[in-house]
Structures are given as structure tokens and as C-alpha cells.
């Protein structure tokens, strides 16, 4: 495991790292909804500026943030090109039979920004929030569902445990793969059936190990009196502070205000 996984948590102590997970979840959601629902220029410009401000503040190497986007660029560029070519309207540039229209260019740039912001906002969330914080943030946000008899605590525990064990299981899979390779397991065989059988040589021990670990974990939790109720307290309380309020205000300003000011008026797509 020499390379880090795309969007994996990178520990740090930046302003963005220290924000409450609820702020980041709500903020990210707000930006995504705005970007998907609105078609006007100022909203896009504001949100793009906002997201790059966040990237600047999180103090993670920008290259690391864009590490996984190599294939994303393909999608982004393709959709940009198709929008430019296939949208009918006022011709802007004519190259032989290809006609790039003003409307097409406009929609192309919008799609480009839309995909970029979608990618960045979700990546920033997972890169700056530890899985446990993310789970407690989700629990806090979903807690009103308690009144509908949804077992929010248990669901949150489920999410935390799954997130917690993903790296462990990946590591174990790597070790078992290496152990089977040391016994000559043909992982790169040309025959599909052989490759499938070899996969089983990793899959079976992995399942056996996971079941064993789940049993042990259940015993360990029960011996510490875990009963799945809502009476569990937390070691680290979520703390919604002034920075969080400011961050949410900023996001609200860039997401909601432009709706009232510009939507449906002169910045709309010309039809």
C-alpha cells in the first residue's frame, strides 16, 4: 500500500480540519444542491471562489487533492466538448462542419465547473474529516429521526465500525494476497477461471478472519456493557463554535443570496 487512496483522510490542524463535521456536511450539501439546481453565472463564480478558498485553507498540497482527478479530467473534457458542439444556437466559431455556439460554450463551462465543484467538495470533506468525526456528525444530523423510531445510535455505531475496519481489512487482504503469492498463487494467469479460483484463496481467509473479528468485537463491546441504547456518552463531544457559524454564514451567503438577486433575470441562459 504505497499510494494513498483517493479522498482518504489526511490528518492536519488547519482551519478546515478543525471545523465541526456537521458544518462541513451541511456546507458541502448546500454547495452541491446549489450547483445542481441553479444555472446562473454569479452563483457559479461565487461557489468556485469559495471552494478554492477552502482548498487554500485546508493546507493540503493541491496536487494531492487533484491526484484522483486524472480520469475525472477525461469526463470533464468530454462533456465540455460535447456541450460546445451539440448545443444549437448562435454560432461563435465555425470549423468546417463543426459549429461551436455561444450557448454551447456557456453550458460547457457550467458543466465543467459543476463537475469540478462536485468532486472538490466531496473530496475535501473526506480528506479533512476523520471517519469517526464524520460518523458522529452524521449521527447528530440524523438524530431528529429518533422520533420516527429510527435507531440512529445503532446506525451511527454501524457506520463508525464499518469505516474503522475498512483499512484493517484492506491491510489484511494485502497480507493474505502476499502469503498466497509466496505459495505461487497465479494472480496474473491468462485464464479467467484460474484467476477466479486464486481470488477465492484470498476471499475465503478474509471472510473467516472478518467473522472471527466481528465475534471478538461483539464480545469486547458487550463486556463493556454496550447494549445499543441511546445512553452512550462520547469521549469527544462535537463542538459547534464561532468559526462554524461564520463558515455556514459564508456558505449561505454564496448559495442562497444570489438566488434571490439574480435567478430568472438577466444572467439566465439566453434561450
Amino acid at each position: 500500500m504505497k499510494k494513498l487512496k483517493l479522498g482518504g483522510y489526511l490528518p492536519g490542524d488547519s482551519l478546515i480540519h478543525r471545523l465541526d463535521p456537521r458544518t462541513k456536511l451541511l456546507g458541502g450539501l448546500a454547495i452541491i444542491i446549489t450547483i445542481l439546481a441553479v444555472n446562473s453565472w454569479p452563483v457559479f463564480v461565487l461557489n468556485t471562489v469559495l471552494i478554492f478558498l477552502v482548498v487554500y485553507l485546508e493546507k493540503i498540497d493541491f496536487k494531492a487533492v487533484l491526484q484522483g482527478v486524472k480520469w475525472m479530467w477525461m469526463i470533464i473534457l468530454l462533456s465540455f466538448t460535447f456541450q460546445c458542439i451539440f448545443v444549437k444556437g448562435t454560432p461563435l466559431v465555425v470549423i468546417g462542419r463543426l459549429i461551436i455556439t455561444r450557448e454551447g460554450l456557456y453550458l460547457g463551462v457550467l458543466t465543467f465547473l459543476r463537475l469540478l465543484i462536485l468532486y472538490l467538495s466531496s473530496t475535501i470533506l473526506t480528506m479533512t474529516t476523520s471517519p469517526l468525526k464524520l460518523a458522529s456528525g452524521l449521527e447528530a444530523l440524523f438524530s431528529p429521526l429518533r422520533y420516527l423510531k429510527v435507531p440512529v445510535n445503532q446506525l451511527a455505531m454501524l457506520i463508525s465500525i464499518s469505516l474503522r475496519f475498512i483499512p484493517t481489512i484492506i491491510e489484511e487482504a494485502e497480507i493474505i494476497t502476499k502469503a498466497q503469492k509466496s505459495r505461487g498463487a497465479p494472480f496474473s494467469s491468462a485464464k479467467k477461471l484460474v484467476r477466479l479460483q486464486t481470488g477465492m484463496a484470498v476471499f475465503i481467509p478474509l471472510i473467516v478472519g472478518s467473522l472471527q473479528r466481528a465475534t471478538d468485537l461483539a464480545t469486547a463491546m458487550e463486556s463493556r456493557c454496550y447494549t445499543g441504547g441511546s445512553n452512550c456518552s462520547r469521549l469527544k463531544k462535537l463542538n459547534f463554535g464561532r468559526t462554524d457559524l461564520m463558515a455556514l454564514a459564508l456558505i449561505a451567503a454564496s448559495c442562497i443570496l444570489p438566488l434571490f438577486c439574480f435567478h430568472g433575470r438577466f444572467w439566465q441562459v439566453p434561450r
Binding site: 502469503a179 498466497q180 509466496s182 505461487g184 481467509p205 473467516v208
Partner: peptide, 30 residues
């Protein structure tokens, strides 16, 4: 791997065949 046999830590975690015979025969078949 044919020349250098490597036994990992806790190697019982890598067992996967149905019988002990098949388990030992796995590397030999390969």
C-alpha cells in the same frame, strides 16, 4: 517463490482449502 519459501506472521490466517491435504498441495500444484 519456488526458491524462497516465506511463512508470514500468523500463517494460519491464510488457510482456505477444504482439507489439510489440499492446503499443503496448493503450493505444490502451483
Amino acid at each position: 517463490w519456488k526458491k524462497v519459501g516465506l511463512v508470514f506472521q500468523f500463517p494460519e490466517k491464510q488457510l482456505f482449502e477444504a482439507t489439510v491435504f489440499d492446503e499443503l498441495a496448493y503450493g505444490l500444484k502451483n
